[in-house]
């Protein structure tokens, strides 16, 4: 990692991005996602079914990172706002890679998210590789860990994401 900019070196091991309460979770938002993936799980849709399991309907776990992403526009917004994996975009910019893709994800699911909740997100940079040749162009791999907590600090989930940042050859 000797070739990394000092700024990026200073990020390793730290919660570089902390996002507090960007949106309030609401049911119709997650049902739009369920419609997109055609997921009819009654825990997401059916209040009376959910009552005996989760007290109320819950949001799909796959959407946990979505609740840390700001609206694409809001009054007074400047720049890009907070994107779903803001630290990933900060790394792309700091390392001058116009492109980036997710290569692997590991999620551990804890307490489910319900309507009215908001989510606190901590993004921690774990590592950045040296530059290497990839089939998409020269690039680097990096890993970001994310801790998701409810507004009352209850743990919702843990995530580890591996990325490839690259520029066209």
């Amino acid at each position: 990692m000797a070739d990394l900019p000092e700024l990026v070196k200073s990020w390793i091991g730290k919660a570089v991005v902390v996002v507090e309460r960007t949106v309030t979770v609401e049911k119709e938002s997650w049902l739009n996602f369920c419609a997109a993936i055609q997921d009819g799980n009654p825990l997401y849709w059916d209040e009376s079914f959910a009552q005996s399991h989760t007290d109320h309907t819950i949001a799909p776990f796959a959407m946990l990172p979505s609740w840390g992403s700001t609206h694409p526009w809001y009054p007074g917004k400047q720049g890009d706002g907070v994107r779903a994996m803001e630290l990933h975009f900060m790394l792309k910019e700091a390392l001058a890679y116009p492109n980036g893709i997710v290569t692997s994800v590991e999620m551990t699911y804890h307490e489910p998210v319900r309507a009215g909740d908001s989510v606190r997100v901590e993004q921690i940079l774990r590592n950045v590789s040296e530059e290497r040749a990839t089939r998409l162009g020269p690039g680097r791999d990096w890993t970001i860990e994310v801790v998701y907590r409810r507004q009352d600090q209850v743990l919702l989930g843990l995530e580890s994401m591996s990325f490839l940042g690259y520029r066209r050859s």
Partner: peptide
């Protein structure tokens, strides 16, 4: 990747039934 996670989770719970609880997805 969120859509892929959603499709995988839905594939599992369609098989298991909604009483099942997914703990980890990789």
């Amino acid at each position: 990747n969120y859509t892929q996670a959603g499709l995988i989770n839905a594939y599992v719970t369609d098989w298991s039934g909604p009483a099942a609880r997914i703990g980890r997805l990789r």
